[in-house]
Simulated scan of single mutants.
Amino acid sequence: MRRARTGTPVAVAALVAGLLGAGGPAAGAGGGAGGGTPARAADVAVKVAADVAGAAGIAGVAGVAADDCDTGASLPPGQRVGAKIQEIRKRGRLVVGVDQNAYNWGYRDSQTGKIEGFDIDLARAVAKSVLGDPDKVVLKTISTADRINVLKDHQVDLIARAMTVTCERKKQIAFSAPYFKVSQRVVAPKAAHATSVAQALGGKRVCAALNSSSHTELKADPHGAASVVTPDNQLDCLVLMELGEADATLSDSSLAAAMVAQDQTMELAGESFLPTYMGVGMNQDDTDLISWVNQVLVEWRGGGWQASYDTWLRPSMGVPDPYRPW
């Protein structure tokens, strides 16, 4: 089974230690959450990360060769008012690409009509930092398949949409420092009684959202799947399983847990694999925004991250292990 490179240099470990809320989920959910690491520790970690990254030239922004890719690397945090921050302030709104179907991450509440969730809280935290008001944000719903293109075409300022950091994506867009730990997980009907990835996917019709990291994994390693179904959005995979038109879904662990929370006839099947991180996606040219978002993550890690996790994710992902970088 293939394994992703998630980064071991001191710079990455220090940066993630200050910014990433991660840990081992309950009930095999495969996600993670942080506890209350003091802000001072985060500041020290950021300083070390910045110093080492600067010395080593670790930017993790422009075109990175797959062999040299470090999915935990990003620009050091800071609040420089450059061209992109000026553009956002002149406009008076932060435009964020989000999901409206990812339960508890970015989904439209059927009663209020509002888009809410963990990623939405993060988007509002960035808007508050840049513009002084968390409500000065335009939530633009986009499909999984379109995430890269809307960033490259400057249709949004950033994407907060349960987006995993991959080496191929880092060749095209930039990512913030990690804010959540994920891995690949299989969702299958309980009636299938699958106890391993091989059993859940072998000879089956497997669903994965188009251009998702799971779709990329299935292209590289079908895991014995008989066929692959690729709708534009991950929620469509749940619907296809409910309709009997797909036998299993491969997704990152965060969205896999959300699917199981939505439909009690589904379960996480088999082991997790290919651990990596989720990050905020941005255009490679917007270096001032990248650093600004990383600073927001440092501050959000001091309390907002945990409050948001408790509100949206704890019911489906459980109580995490103590905070740790991986």
Rank of each mutant, 00 (worst) to 15 (best):
G97L: 02
V206R: 02
V61C: 04
F175V: 01
L250N: 01
G18L: 10
L235T: 10
A198E: 10
G78W: 08
L151D: 03
A188W: 03
V12Y: 01
G202E: 12
S214M: 02
V138W: 13
S213G: 13
G302W: 08
E299L: 14
D135Q: 14
S272R: 15
F180C: 03
W326L: 06
C69K: 00
P189W: 00
T37S: 11
A220E: 11
K204C: 10
K128H: 12
A209G: 15
L94H: 11
A22S: 15
Q295C: 05
T195E: 12
A42V: 04
A62F: 11
G244I: 05
T37V: 15
G244K: 05
A127S: 14
I115A: 10
W300L: 04
R108V: 11
T71C: 05
G97N: 04
R3P: 03
E217Y: 07
G244L: 07
A191W: 00
L20R: 13
D43L: 04
P76R: 07
P76L: 08
K114F: 15
R161C: 01
K190P: 06
V293W: 01
D133F: 09
A62W: 03
V61M: 03
G7F: 07
A14V: 10
D321I: 09
G203W: 10
K140D: 14
N104I: 06
G54R: 15
G28M: 08
A246Y: 11
G31D: 10
I58N: 12
V137C: 12
G244V: 04
I290K: 09
D310F: 07
R301W: 06
I173L: 09
G82K: 06
